[in-house]
Design a protein around this nucleic acid. Sequence first.
DNA 1: CCTAACTATGTACAGTGTACGAATTAAGGT
DNA 2: ACCTTAATTCGTACACTGTACATAGTTAGG
Lengths: 259, 259
Amino acid sequence: MDSKSDGSGFDPESVDVVLRLLWREHLEVAPGRRGPRRKLSVDEIIAAGVALADAEGLEALSMRKVAEAVGVSVMSLYSYVPHRSGLIGLMVDEVIGRTALPELPEGVGERLRMISDLLWDEYHRHPWLVAAQSHRPWIGPHTSARYEWELGALEGIGLDDIAMDHTVALVESHASASASNSINAQKLADDSGVSDVDWWNANAPFLEQVMPDEGYPVSGRVGSAVGEAYQAVTSHRAVYEFGVETIIAGVEARLSAPA
Amino acid sequence: MDSKSDGSGFDPESVDVVLRLLWREHLEVAPGRRGPRRKLSVDEIIAAGVALADAEGLEALSMRKVAEAVGVSVMSLYSYVPHRSGLIGLMVDEVIGRTALPELPEGVGERLRMISDLLWDEYHRHPWLVAAQSHRPWIGPHTSARYEWELGALEGIGLDDIAMDHTVALVESHASASASNSINAQKLADDSGVSDVDWWNANAPFLEQVMPDEGYPVSGRVGSAVGEAYQAVTSHRAVYEFGVETIIAGVEARLSAPA
DNA sequence: CCTAACTATGTACAGTGTACGAATTAAGGT
DNA sequence: ACCTTAATTCGTACACTGTACATAGTTAGG
């Protein structure tokens, strides 16, 4: 043990600051610290960040706004949280922890669907989660519990460890990507005040001019069918459903035809 | 025909500016315009934007840098392009046009794989494409040609129009999401100088402390298996491959078991 | 009580997208 | 040839952003 060791067997200096914050509940409370008493807890900051992002999106989450929300000067935040990106990482684990992990049903398909729907719903409850994915994915307590739960749903059904991991990743990818499409479309409509259909109606005459029918035989026909089926340009929810079902069918095919 | 009509049957005022720029090749050249001769073409600006984004990423694509690259003042750009977001839309269609659409092989699986790989490769050639997806998806000539090609690959194999559209969307979603994971990891490693493995090595002792083995039975085992298989924390490419195969299996299952 | 550690805060910097207005250029109408 | 008018270029300005740094104030340990 070196001089800085607290007997836990790792060098506390080299541990990612955000990581220590993520697991703050699992660490002994810090010993009596000098200096002024802290006005806040990290949790208050995280909660304020989540509220702000829920309400106005991640791009509106500025350190100044968070600071104002918790009633502290901007630079004081930096004594709680190392940077904006780290705060976002903490927010992600926080909201993941807010979603309870339900009992798993019987059947592989039912389980995959439950996982997928849980993610889809969560993304729509916190639309900024899709934009948060371009930041470093830190390993927090709730993220870890979620992963354990997801893998547990596939335990003992006949997939090897690698396939279990990749199947979870596939379901997560698909839920994330289709939710992302759905959410971006919604955000664009909100921000610009122009809905999908409005935009299409305004620009259809122009497109008919530059896109002659004979140049797009298949997509012309398919586009019409889609428009007619949903009475809209597209239905993100339907695309999502179709994807989940296809993926489930693929996993089941893998199970019944082992390598 | 109203006073502003050019005989084409649509009101040119209501057409999205970016849309007109996207289809600029298909429009008659503008009649003699007053004012100073333009120093540039839109294409030069788009090309400069693509070069910049390829080299430094989308967040480094500032109007000031683009302006400097083409040798013009910042605000002059705005006489060519309505805003940064529109420029990005034009860049997207441009790079999509740079990828040739190859002959389609026989077999549904082979075709889906070709489409998917084409997208995966394209994302890795232009990593900023993943970040560009949060902007409005304009309908450009190359995007349309791509969509027509993708649908053409599924024509006549036994899917109805809706299923064709959704299958293409599924493959695109999956390619986009897995490429996004791969690219984000790469970018984070580059920017921070800390690789996946380095980070893990530095923080593993801490994680072992806060994550007791008995709390994560399945993910502990699976994580080890994955680490051993790839000699890395994960293999984005392998996850992608697994997903493509599963999706193909799902589509084939759908084909052999009609509703 | 003094010192060393810690917190809170103000200021400052190098950026960002783009609205606005002024100056310049060239074409169309007479 | 001249005037009008549209189009282009460009400088300045504004409201923001994240965060580095220095300073002042507060508390616990020795």
